[in-house]
Design a binder for these strands. Structure first.
Lengths: 272, 272
DNA sequence: CACTGATAGTTTACGACGTAAGGAATCAAC
DNA sequence: GTTGATTCCTTACGTCGTAAACTATCAGTG
């Protein structure tokens, strides 16, 4: 399920999002001292989502984790949508925020992409937060700002830059999704990758004997095996299971292709 | 919410998925004649998801649409997960399935990408079906087969092809997501794009007066305006609202960059 | 000091959801 | 005509987000 965020009052949401990061107003008004806070709630919710996944994120579960009821949260947060907005922006504080020191924009973008990939892999639930009506939080803007700054070094025009941003971010998200899915598949049902595929492919070859004729291109590709590593940093032997390794390799290749394409655009601009 | 599919018995799921497309076994056994069928259920569910979105897709709603109760569906379909699998594969029958007639793989891939984009835009809920543990349905395989066949024309090695498949499909999905989100944003709250943004940006400039200093790169980019259309087929004036037009333009630019990158790989292979 | 009234958190409840369990209606085969 | 498989419905359970009403806790006021 994709969870939609930000349906509520935009003013309230934005105020919560942009509340000065170090201003949890410890106002001493009347009434009992607050034992809960927005930050504590968001932190607990993020922990929960990281550990158990988006499906396990319920108001009751977040409340439990804090030793309170679900309804206690509603004093501090308007609803689940807004909590999601806050979680979303909160983790985006981990996005890289360093400006290029070298002039090698290609290397800088490569580093950036890998760091963002790891970010999404650390918080795969972020990929399930709908992007419709963007949340516009401070940390997301900061992450965006970094990428724009890195892309500036290419010298391309503003319009192109904007579209490259719109291409690179989804690309990394897609790759992260693939890695996260690979991990999920490995963890699910306790069965190993091989076992999972074995059950499926056995059933498949039985149910679809004419597979090779119906899908010649795919069949041929599968027969040719996973050779021809794309030119990239030589990988050491690692204990990463095959599907995830393949997803990461796809990421590297795709990124290389994208950067080659950007390079072509830069060359064209410099030439013409 | 991202809905997970395919948790149930893999045999049962696969049998349903690959049941010969024209074999709704009209077996005459004992018992009342079935007034429902897997195909009718899947069709109704797809209609519902197309019209009202994934969030509105409940077993009760699908049953209602067919003049039955929710529980009636369980005679034909093991559960919601499997129904989602079937819906997912069912719509993938719309994916392009033509093999290249010309040798111009670039043109063929461009056409392919645009057709797939339109497919996703027609059925945006497909983008919310989790890709973990792929569904392995016949129509998905067919769509995959087409892309592989198109990519073959580049002459690249099998390993590279596999990774390009893993790059191109998510790229189109990401672009479709952006278009779908743009439409959703336009439809939501009944407010126009301008109004939506006006409320937000008014609140933003009030809440964050130092925006320009905190996010210099983004600010500069916004100041430079949406100029510099990427070289592509010149667009006529159209009534498509701005955010969607921008999303589609991003798609065109991103695709161009990707294809430039593939071209570079092809050139490198032919040279070396 | 007692009292007032705002605030934090709990309890209870409602209508949605997916689906398990059991019952009623229907019909081919004997 | 009876049997028994099959389709579909009814009811019910435990989950969810959250509205409404309640209680408990305190700063400020007299």
């Amino acid at each position: 399920m994709v969870v939609f965020a930000g349906q509520g009052d935009p003013r309230r949401s934005l105020t919560l999002l942009w509340r000065a990061d170090a201003s949890p107003p410890p106002r001493g008004g009347p009434g009992p001292r607050a034992r809960l806070s927005v930050d504590a709630i968001v932190a607990a919710a993020v922990e929960l989502a990281d550990e158990k996944g988006m499906a396990a994120l319920s108001m009751r579960a977040v409340g439990d984790r804090l030793g309170h009821t679900a309804m206690a949260l509603y004093t501090h947060v308007p609803g689940k949508s807004e909590l999601l907005d806050l979680m979303h922006d909160s983790v985006h504080a981990e996005l890289p925020r360093h400006y290029p020191e070298s002039d090698d924009w290609r290397e800088a973008l490569t580093t950036w992409a890998h760091e963002v990939l790891e970010f999404y892999v650390r918080h795969p639930w972020v990929l399930q937060v709908s992007q419709a009506r963007p949340v516009l939080g401070p940390h997301e803007y900061a992450g965006l700002d970094t990428l724009v700054a890195l892309l500036r070094a290419t010298g391309l025009a503003a319009g192109t830059l904007r579209r490259l941003v719109g291409t690179l971010f989804p690309f990394v998200r897609g790759a992260a999704q693939a890695v996260a899915d690979a991990r999920l598949a490995a963890a699910a049902t306790g069965s190993s990758d091989e076992e999972w595929w074995a059950v499926r492919s056995a059933a498949l070859t039985e149910l679809v004997p004419d597979f090779a004729e119906r899908f010649p291109a795919v069949s041929r590709l599968e027969a040719e095996g996973p050779v021809d590593p794309y030119p990239g940093p030589g990988g050491d032997a690692d204990p990463v299971p095959f599907p995830e390794r393949e997803a990461r390799e796809t990421f590297r290749v795709g990124l290389g292709v994208l950067l080659d394409g950007i390079e072509a655009a830069v060359a064209a601009r410099e030439a013409g």
